[in-house]
Design a protein around this nucleic acid. Structure first.
Lengths: 253, 253
DNA sequence: CTTGACTCTGACGTTGCGTCAGGGTTGAAC
DNA sequence: GTTCAACCCTGACGCAACGTCAGAGTCAAG
């Protein structure tokens, strides 16, 4: 009874190409029987197998692994699926952030036809910010993360540029004044500028400030590109000077 | 001034591998100068280029296309990005449905360690339902789509199986009774069963019914696998008979 | 001069087929 | 019996973005 199919028929039946069937045959995923002349012959029960292959492929599972799943048919299916789900979720994370990067760049450069370089700069900026956010997350409590999300609304490109400039300037000024007495008016003025800049990030929130501090403590474990970007601010003497200035300011006897 | 870098240094600086730099060189994406001995030498300005490449690659744009974007630097950037966004969004759709398929299969087979074949069956079922939903969408109005979403809650595996069986049985019964008078009690009973089954899908909603009708009219354009699945219900005489029975039922003089 | 740390090019491997190319098979029409 | 269209077969190369040797040259230090 059970009808026999030649490749083309069978392929159409399952919605795949002939070449794919050849491929699965060679990989040992689905081996049909043969006519004397060597033509492939498929039975209907092969269709079930093929549908399973197609389904697992749709889930992004590599053919070799599919073969293994069939081969040593030990019920490892659900484990494989759990793993695959995590793989796919990770892929989705990356996809999402790529899409968001394009969206933000489009929004930011929408008015007027900016030159390509401006768009690219924006894209790079967004991507970098995303993965900075990503790894810096671990330093902040859940609540602090939410609050940062709130404050991100203030992070316009102009503001970011301004903050960068202010930090650079301040750092240079402190470096130049390292000889001063930390309790001096000059040093206190620098400390005040410093405090204000920190607050422009924390918004005065103590939880955000706590996370920021934790992050700073963990400098040695920062990813390479972050260390790179923080290079201009790596002079330890500056940090120590500001630290002393704060102490001197708080305890004025 | 502007420092010169050897491959390894430069690669570390940008967070890519040496091999990748070789590759970009060969593809003409980033050609460094060379020492007399043939060693690659990178300048700092090459870093900017490289960062752009990495960024575009992150967005999933193929290297060849990146090269073209640089090469004929005509401001096609924003167009490329718009296109790429759509590509990525499509990918995300597929990813999402793969993830949903796994999730649903896990939920459906969670209690107890089902054999692999049961899990696979569930996966296939979910995938097929998803893309049926996908293409059938175009036949329904927005409102009808929402209502269908509502009614999908009733689509338990048991119900689906039951409906399939009832349709198959009914179709067979009508086929057997094609000789009857459409106005006869027997024919009217069949028509009533038919009507009830349709309503089990539409829930009596006229908008859903309208979409269903549109879909039926468009049979010739159904995707192959759907035609395949509808094969058992393709006997035109059955549809015509039911049509006549409905007419006879409505107009009983 | 040797050694260790780099660098170079060339070439194969990976993933899932698409796409020829060269050559049999089959069933029907002439 | 032949011929023709329509299929079928098995290689083998191509694609994307590098990873991974392999064999060989370069450079600075000891």
């Amino acid at each position: 009874m059970s009808k026999l199919y030649h490749v083309r028929e069978f392929a159409k039946l399952a919605g795949v190409t002939v070449r794919a069937l050849h491929h699965y045959d060679r990989l040992g995923l689905l081996r049909p029987s043969r006519t004397e002349a060597g033509y492939r012959l498929y039975y209907l029960r092969d269709l079930e197998r093929l549908e399973q292959i197609v389904a697992l492929k749709f889930l992004g599972i590599p053919l070799k692994q599919i073969r293994m799943m069939f081969h040593r048919g030990t019920n490892g299916m659900s484990d494989s699926l759990r793993m695959q789900r995590r793989v796919l979720e990770e892929k989705r994370r990356l996809l999402d952030s790529a899409i968001r990067a394009i969206e933000e760049a489009e929004r930011a450069t929408a008015p007027g036809n900016r030159p390509d370089s401006a768009i690219l700069k924006k894209i790079i900026e967004v991507i970098e910010m995303q993965d900075n956010m990503d790894w810096s997350k671990k330093y902040y409590s859940e609540e602090a993360q939410d609050k940062i999300e709130e404050r991100k609304k203030l992070w316009s490109p102009e503001n970011q540029e301004r903050w960068t400039k202010e930090w650079t300037d301040l750092f240079r000024d402190v470096e130049a004044g390292l000889g001063e007495d930390p309790a001096s008016a000059k040093a206190q003025a620098l400390a005040a500028r410093w405090k204000k800049l920190v607050e422009s990030f924390t918004g005065g929130d103590p939880q955000i400030a706590a996370g920021l501090s934790k992050m700073y403590q963990d400098r040695p474990n920062w990813p390479a590109n972050m260390q790179q970007r923080m290079q201009p601010f790596s002079n330890k003497k500056v940090w120590e000077f500001i630290q002393r200035a704060f102490v001197a300011g708080k305890d004025p006897n």
